[in-house]
Design a protein around this nucleic acid. Structure first.
Lengths: 144, 144
DNA sequence: ATTACTTGTAACCGAAACAATTACATCATG
DNA sequence: CATGATGTAATTGTTTCGGTTACAAGTAAT
């Protein structure tokens, strides 16, 4: 199992829109950079739009970020592209036997632990913004 | 996407083996408590055995924990049942276009972030043991 | 040693998620 | 109106998951 690459692609899309802001980034152009089909990009951009991260208009090429780079966290993108449901990173077997000491209590015991583990992971994403990403890409570019 | 319930079931199995240690816990018995098929339990127990967490003998009913409750972390179980590969909790789209500033650098920029997020989640699991689970189950049982 | 019960596996199935692809309706603009 | 863009639905192949059946091989008691 693995978290969908929609998340990585979402980050890619937003970074590209910013770094290429002089010219319009059409879905076709972005698809070339990501190396996938334009329809895949449009679907993900639809999610980003719905989440209020970008502004796109039907028929008109390109998109713009709705907020400052520093105001878009990786967690915002993560939620936008819908890769992990709230408190459902870990799945729990359902209907354990209620007449068993373990079966009766295991879900209530495990749930808060799974939630804590998921939260720890998501907190890392909350503390990073697109600005961090873009600056890192620029830094790596200058080294070469 | 969601992390396989093998992890939750693995915890269930080990807790049950301990809490039921007066009598042998056959795969059939455990399957009843988990509410699944005995073959599923045997497959997961095979993984737990391979990881050195339990001792099982072909033909003889029941299993025993190989270590003390406090010496088995949730992370040990998590690794044993093979639900998430090393540094692959998040998947990254491959072959982004090398002639693009973003495509060229995005993987190197994102990878350490994804690793950090995964590590934060796994650290929570490392800090909890089967003893915590069993004690919590017992506590919940006494309230009722 | 025969019987009964167990573990260990392999094979197969249906359901769900992913990413890719094709197709087309809709919209904007020169 | 012609061109080129977005929006979206339908389809496909692949993979993973959990469940199920079947059976070989081991153990233990009689």
């Amino acid at each position: 199992m693995s978290i969908s690459s929609r998340f990585a692609v979402g980050i890619h899309i937003l970074a590209l829109i910013d770094l290429n802001k002089e010219t319009a980034s059409s879905s076709e152009f972005i698809a070339g950079s990501v190396n996938t089909n334009a329809a895949v990009i449009r679907k993900i951009m639809g999610m980003l739009k719905k989440a209020g991260l970008i502004d796109v208009q039907p028929g008109v090429a390109g998109a713009k970020l709705s907020r400052e780079l520093s105001e878009i966290t990786l967690f915002d993108i993560y939620k936008a592209v819908n890769v992990v449901e709230e408190n459902e990173l870990f799945s729990i077997h359902d209907k354990p036997h209620p007449d068993c000491v373990v079966g009766k209590n295991i879900q209530n015991t495990i749930e808060p632990i799974f939630m804590a583990a998921q939260s720890a992971m998501e907190k890392v994403l909350q503390n990073l913004t697109l600005e961090d990403i873009v600056k890192d890409i620029e830094a790596k570019e200058h080294i070469k």
